[in-house]
Design a protein around this nucleic acid. Structure first.
Lengths: 237, 237
DNA sequence: CCATGTCAGATTGCATACGATTTAGACGTG
DNA sequence: CACGTCTAAATCGTATGCAATCTGACATGG
């Protein structure tokens, strides 16, 4: 899989170029324009964004740190290819963290933010009704964004960072092990969670969230099929 | 505050030198040989570990990513100086995550691992009984290690990584806002948690853990004293 | 005496150069 | 035809040089 043309970053970033590149690649990964296993060579990334290898490398290091990319010494960086076990860990972590996030969000959510959530859900619905791969990608992203918005209003920057990592890794996992085309079934669940939040029913919101995560994970096929057998069998021990 | 002599890294690291440097600095931060606010210049770090600025820079970037170091563009890297608000976020995150960690640890803990915990607690106690700053540092580190061991046996690498970040940041917070010399009071609580784990009483272990975290946080003085006012006031909005 | 403007030194951001390591393909041999 | 070896290209890891930026000191003017 190859990255297409030269990408022009959102202009307003004269500084922190590696951070901008990180986000661009990150987005490409979470909406699956970059498949797991894809090689990301420093030279290629550098050329693509028109920077030197130094800054491309920095971006890849950041991505490696948040688990979206795996680097092998003297071999390069590859889009992560999480094992079924890693996949389970991702969702175990989310089950642990997200109920707490909704609980903290409950107290701090302003009416304006509720309105923002509503708009977000509308957008989700809109993407769902559209056809085509672009709409699909947008839908995936929007679905993750719901969880990130929640983390954002929780007011805890650390948890927010953790959630960013977990949501991104979830995308990878779903790309690899997702059974139904998309775990889009989640939209109505998002709605229900928001309703519970609006009614200040924290118990229910947390329960719905856990249910939602269970639901996503249940849609995966985590039997260690994907391994063509050998390659992955030998990387475990 | 200056870093003293040249440091020789644990020999067995011919590869991943930046990772080794990261850990060395990390350790220096968590047992408070490096005070919050200390400047870490690329050249100085590089000279200290006898590497080029390139690899020193990589180490600093990693530390920045896990929140132990803050970099300001064109100004350099500094040991983080968490605000009271960040401090609260650290403990809020721990309160959220650690009960889950003990729950997962409960199921997977082997007798051998229990033995390991006992030894760890003995070491904690030993450091507590000794005098001198070196013993104090060892005690702080050992205290954090208890929590990290717990995360380790939980079998979830992602949570383990999160906990490493949180424990390290906690050290910074305690260094800044700790009231009593040390939050060493925690030792008996560690013991109690381990007892509960051994008795397979997950409820109690989780409750004790929360209590323990509350206890640590209660020992802090998080009134926003340190702000000389202006500098911090302007960095918020 | 304090405030403001200017300059030198220091430090970072980035690009590039070079050696080391890995990989792929050619080639010869059993 | 299969297999092992060797060479060459590609790619990474690291060091270093240069330009841009910041800090602090000093000079100047109010």
């Amino acid at each position: 899989m190859n990255i297409s043309e030269k990408i022009i970053l959102p202009e307003a970033a004269p500084e922190d170029r590696s951070g901008a590149i990180r986000e661009a690649i990150r987005n490409a990964i979470i909406d699956r324009r970059l498949a797991p296993g894809t090689k990301l060579s420093e030279a290629e990334v550098g050329a693509l964004f028109d920077v030197s290898r130094t800054v491309a490398r920095a971006a890849l290091q950041m991505l490696a740190f948040e688990g979206l990319v795996k680097t092998e010494r003297n071999r390069g960086a590859f889009v992560s290819h999480p094992s079924p076990d890693e996949a389970r860990q991702v969702f175990a972590s989310r089950r642990l963290i997200e109920p707490g996030v909704v609980a903290e969000a409950l107290d701090r959510m302003t009416p304006a933010e509720i309105e923002g959530f509503r708009r977000q859900l509308d957008e989700e619905a809109r993407h769902m009704s559209e056809r085509g791969p672009a709409a699909r990608r947008a839908e995936i992203k929007a679905s993750g964004d719901f969880h990130l918005m929640l983390a954002s209003v929780s007011g805890n920057a650390i948890l927010q960072k953790f959630m960013e990592e977990l949501v991104a890794r979830s995308s990878l996992v779903i790309a690899l092990y997702g059974r139904s085309g998309i775990s889009s079934c989640g939209h109505s669940e998002h709605s229900a969670i928001l309703d519970a939040l609006e009614n200040k029913d924290g118990e229910r919101a947390a329960a719905l969230m856990i249910h939602h995560i269970d639901h996503i994970e249940a849609d995966l096929d985590l039997q260690l099929k994907q391994g063509s057998g050998l390659k992955d069998a030998l990387s475990l021990p």
